[in-house]
């Protein structure tokens, strides 16, 4: 039962679509593809009102985004329940990010409540929103414009069954986390996004320093993309950049030692300089990748990240540049047959 909602006159009853709390194999496949960044922005469902189970006019109305991962997290948490799900048009973006951009917002919510004729479908005036939708929605304004009271539910849909018993969220339900699982699920999309820079870096490294540099480049970048998010809370220091320098230094160290060992024919200072380039270039690269992970987390502030950029980007650039100059100088000296 799908009907186009656009262009309905107010007298017409718009279609209420049906859905279930059961996720199919196709749903799981879609989630997997979304996590790998395949067809980003294409994991959408039609905005509008959905009936889960057999909702009566007193059934709760839960609001979500038209991103399949958001919608599916919500409906799969509501097994054996009757409810209405109001899906806002967030252009296939999750609730929190869409709220930050304003698409999961007051205007869209007010518009959607009117468009589906919610007032005539339910006999109460309460909308339950995910807590993370709050950056985009002014609850008092929604009340003023629609008569519906906005109630912010828990952060995670999984806590909804518990929440719906009392309509009270515990402090635990109100907190975002960034557990190992949360950090692991965001890694694939960064791997996909990092493939092109990785390929370019490996090619350039090979041209300048051969196979060892190629492997070092891949190690430095993958350490930032994979190792860094996994180890995040256990790496000392608070700033992402310094954490990145630490991880980068540790993974670059074996390459520095290898370079030192493999150039036994050179004078000691040339050997040391060659080894040093590994400790200048690669930790800077890893730290840069680590700094870019800030946007994937659940706790970095804009002011804090901006300060990090101004503090550490010059250091990263300086280390990278110094390492490059040293590499080129070494190549020139070698070419002249010196040392």
């Amino acid at each position: 039962m799908t009907l186009n909602l656009e262009g309905n006159s107010p007298s017409q009853q718009p279609a209420v679509r049906t859905t279930s709390s059961r996720l199919t194999a196709a749903d799981h496949r879609d989630h997997w593809l979304a996590r790998w960044g395949v067809n980003r922005g294409g994991h959408r469902i039609e905005p509008g009102l959905y009936a889960l189970g057999r909702p009566d006019p007193a059934a709760p109305v839960l609001v979500t985004a038209n991103y399949t991962l958001s919608f599916d997290a919500l409906r799969s948490a509501l097994t054996e329940r009757d409810a209405y799900i109001l899906v806002l048009d967030t252009q296939g973006v999750n609730v929190w990010c869409a709220a930050g951009e304003g698409t999961f917002g007051t205007d869209e919510l007010v518009h959607r409540v009117e468009a589906v004729g919610l007032r005539d479908i339910v006999n109460h005036r309460t909308l339950i929103l995910p807590q993370l939708g709050a950056p985009g929605v002014a609850a008092h304004e929604v009340k003023q414009r629609t008569g519906f009271r906005v109630e912010y539910g828990p952060v995670r849909a999984a806590d909804l069954p518990e929440y719906l018993k009392t309509h009270h969220a515990t402090p635990e339900m109100r907190r975002v986390r960034f557990d190992l699982t949360d950090r692991l699920v965001v890694i694939p999309v960064d791997i996909v996004g990092g493939l092109l820079p990785l390929a370019i870096a490996m090619a350039v490294a090979y041209l300048l320093g051969g196979w060892l540099s190629l492997i070092a480049a891949a190690t430095a970048i993958l350490a930032g993309i994979v190792l860094f998010p996994i180890l995040l809370p256990w790496i000392p220091t608070h700033d992402f950049s310094t954490k990145g320098f630490i991880v980068g230094f540790l993974v670059a160290l074996p390459f520095a030692l290898l370079v030192f060992q493999h150039n036994a024919d050179l004078t000691w200072w040339l050997r040391t300089a060659k080894a040093l380039t590994q400790l200048l270039i690669w930790p800077a690269v890893t730290a840069f990748v680590a700094l870019n992970f800030t946007g994937s987390t659940t706790f970095t502030s804009r002011t804090g990240v901006r300060r990090e950029i101004f503090t550490y980007a010059p250091i990263m650039a300086g280390m990278f540049g110094a390492g490059l100059v040293l590499t080129l100088a070494g190549a020139v000296i070698k070419l002249w047959g010196g040392a």
Binding site: G295, F299, G304, E308, I309
Partner: peptide
């Protein structure tokens, strides 16, 4: 956004270095 009294002020935005670059 949800303070009806305007008692809270914060310059909101994304804490994302990649977006800033």
């Amino acid at each position: 956004v949800n303070c009806s009294e305007g008692a809270i002020r914060v310059e909101s935005g994304v804490g994302c270095a990649a977006a800033m670059f």
